Simulated scan of single mutants.
Amino acid sequence: MLKKIFGFKNLLDSITLENIQNKLCEMGFNQKFVEEIMNTLEERSNIGNKKFQEWFYKLNYRLPEEFKDEVFAIKLYDNHRLLIEGEVKKLEKEMNLSWEKQAEDLIDSHEKARKVQLVIRHRLSDIALDLLS
């Protein structure tokens, strides 16, 4: 666990469900999509606040287990196709790599699921880094 350093508050204190939700909204995700993501993260937070903070901090561009469910991911895609496709295009520009290349480790999944998983993995990790800076 990250400890208090030189009298500063714990570095993970900024990782809260409220802050994550605010960051998702700032990124331009619509309210319904944010709610679906937050419902999943709220379930994960039942492990306890400090453990949740450590878990979220350690995502480091890994897909959370909760979002590996292909049926769930396809449903998210079908409900938010335009949003997901827009984010995929943004990621291709940001990374200067095709989404297929970025999602190579997600190869076993359906294309819709892989796109959703890529977006979620990348954006949640972006939020973790942003909250700690």
Score class of each variant (00 low, 15 high):
Gly86Leu: 00
Glu54His: 01
Leu131Tyr: 10
Arg123Leu: 00
Gln31Cys: 01
Gly48Asp: 01
Arg123Asn: 12
Glu100Pro: 01
Arg123Tyr: 10
Glu87Trp: 03
Glu65Pro: 02
Ser133His: 08
Leu12Arg: 01
Met27Thr: 01
Glu66Ala: 15
Cys25Tyr: 05
Gly7Thr: 00
Glu85Val: 13
Asp105Lys: 12
Gly86Asp: 06
Glu42Phe: 08
Gly86Ser: 14
Asn46Phe: 11
Asn49Pro: 00
Glu42Ile: 15
Ile84Gln: 05
Asn39Phe: 03
Phe52His: 03
Leu83Tyr: 02
Lys68Ile: 02
Gln31Asn: 01
His80Ile: 02
Ile120Asp: 05
Glu43Leu: 14
Glu65Trp: 09
Glu43Trp: 03
Leu124Gln: 04
Glu94Lys: 13
Pro64Asp: 00
Pro64Cys: 07
Arg123Pro: 00
Asp13Asn: 05
Leu106Asn: 03
Arg44Ala: 04
Ile120Glu: 03
Lys93Ser: 12
Trp99Asp: 01
Asp126Trp: 01
Val88Asn: 13
Tyr61Ala: 08
Asp13Ser: 14
Asn19Thr: 07
Ile5Tyr: 10
Leu76Lys: 10
Leu24Phe: 10
Lys32Leu: 12
Asp108Phe: 01
Ile47Gln: 13
Phe52Val: 07
Arg44Val: 15
Leu11Ala: 13
Trp55His: 04
Lys58Leu: 10
Ile15Gln: 08
Asp78Val: 02
Glu111Cys: 04
Val116Glu: 13
Lys50His: 10
Asn60Met: 08
Lys23Phe: 08
Arg121Asn: 08
Ser125Asp: 11
Cys25Arg: 12
Glu111Ile: 14
Asn39Cys: 06
Leu129Val: 09
Phe67Met: 10
Ile74Tyr: 01
Glu36Ala: 07
Ile107His: 04
Leu12Phe: 03
Ile74Phe: 00
Asn60Pro: 02
Phe72Met: 12
Ser45Cys: 01
Glu92His: 11
Lys89Gly: 04
Ser109Leu: 08
Lys4Ile: 13
His80Cys: 09
Asp105Ser: 12
Gly48Tyr: 04
Asn96Phe: 00
His110Met: 04
Phe29Trp: 10
Asn79Met: 05
Trp99His: 12
Asn60Phe: 00
Arg44Phe: 11
Glu111Thr: 14
Lys75Glu: 14
Phe72Val: 03
Lys115Gln: 07
Arg81Ser: 15
Leu106Arg: 08
Ile47Arg: 13
Ile47Tyr: 09
Asp13Pro: 01
Ala103Trp: 06
Leu76Arg: 11
His122Met: 03
Gln117Val: 02
Glu43Phe: 14
Thr40Gln: 05
Met27Lys: 15
Asp130Trp: 05
